[in-house]
């Protein structure tokens, strides 16, 4: 791998000041260092951002939680306020990777982890995301775990983070700091669809630093369910983060986000709209899922995800309703 300099920043200003085109911020390194070994990432410099004062979880007076970008994934899942208010977020993070990796991984790094598309990780092969303009071999090649929604002719990758799916359902906001100052980016606007620029996963500007994630309160029971190819330690085929406020059998409010289906966590707003005010029945849930998935374009080998996503929507919301 390319020799690189390693530096530690003590403050956000310092980190920003050191960041140039050839620099990458280093969180836990569980994704970045792997990609450096593979030659996918070749930074000249790493600026370690785990010592920034972004390692706390604060409860705001609004009831929102502010989760620092340097908080370790394990610490997030152990935090009493997170456990109390957002079971779906805890379940999502715990369903990802392994205990060892979660001990190392940070919230910022988790949000910004790259796709697990095999071609992206192999520098001997073309890939529009890694090298724009080289093509997308996944479209005709191996794509059984790639996107069914929102993909483009240039890229059919999925975003791998479980945590981000829960955050999408939670209407979280990503707080950042860049050369132009601070920004609060709603999660819905944080991740991009590939379009003709799959090399850009997010709307972050070059060098922009993620400082925290803000999660507003949610007064509904919630749940994360992940389907994968073994019982643990595998990325999602399809996952769902769902919450529902069901009273007298009627859905007052709900949140649904899907993972493993698109280039970003897929907030299923059409399904939510369809359900609100309707009785929580299998038929209505199936109808809601169909509304959402009408826009799907499965690839040759991933049509199973349609059925899986549909079943997950129906089943997870029914289970949430039973608890109400």
């Amino acid at each position: 791998m390319r020799p690189f300099a390693y530096e530690r920043a003590a403050t956000a200003e310092e980190a920003l000041a050191r960041c140039d085109e050839e620099t990458r911020y280093l969180g836990g390194g569980t994704n970045l260092v792997d990609l450096m070994r593979l030659g996918v990432e070749r930074p000249a410099r790493l600026v370690d951002v785990t010592r920034l004062p972004h390692d706390r979880i604060e409860e705001r007076s609004s009831g929102a939680l502010r989760i620092g970008a340097a908080v370790r994934n394990s610490d997030l899942t152990a935090h009493p306020a997170v456990r109390r208010h957002h079971p779906m977020l805890v379940q999502a993070v715990l369903s990802g990777a392994s205990g060892q990796i979660r001990n190392q991984a940070t919230v910022g790094g988790n949000l910004l982890q790259r796709t697990r598309c095999s071609y992206f990780q192999d520098i001997t092969k073309p890939c529009n995301k890694r090298e724009p303009g080289t093509g997308c071999p996944a479209i005709d090649g191996e794509h059984h775990n790639l996107a069914i929604l929102g993909h483009s002719e240039s890229c059919v990758a999925t975003h791998p983070s479980d945590m981000a799916v829960a955050l999408a359902a939670l209407d979280a906001t990503v707080l950042t700091r860049g050369r132009g100052g601070e920004r609060a980016i709603p999660l819905a606007d944080f991740y991009r669809l590939p379009g003709s620029h799959p090399e850009r996963d997010t709307t972050l500007e070059p060098g922009e630093l993620v400082t925290a994630v803000e999660v507003p309160p949610l007064a509904m029971p919630s749940r994360y369910r992940k389907v994968r190819e073994r019982a643990s330690f595998a990325f999602a085929l399809v996952s769902i983060a769902a919450a529902a406020d069901v009273r007298d059998g009627v859905v007052r409010d709900c949140r649904i986000a899907l993972g493993g289906v698109a280039h970003r966590p897929w907030r299923a707003r059409r399904a939510e709209d369809h359900l609100r005010g309707r009785p929580l029945t299998r038929e209505n849930l199936a109808g809601a899922a169909d509304q959402e998935l009408a826009a799907a374009h499965p690839l040759r080998d991933n049509a199973y995800k349609l059925r899986l996503a549909r079943n997950l929507i129906v089943r997870t919301l029914l289970e949430l309703g039973e608890r109400a």
Binding site: R116, S118, A231
Partner: peptide, 28 residues
């Protein structure tokens, strides 16, 4: 779960790490 997926266009096995080539985890 075990399967080495061959890419016909390139001619090699794609699932070339233990994140992609699944062997049973303890939970299995």
């Amino acid at each position: 779960m075990e399967e080495s997926v061959l890419d016909e266009a390139f001619g090699d096995h794609l699932t070339a790490d233990l994140a992609q080539y699944h062997i049973p985890a303890n939970a299995d």
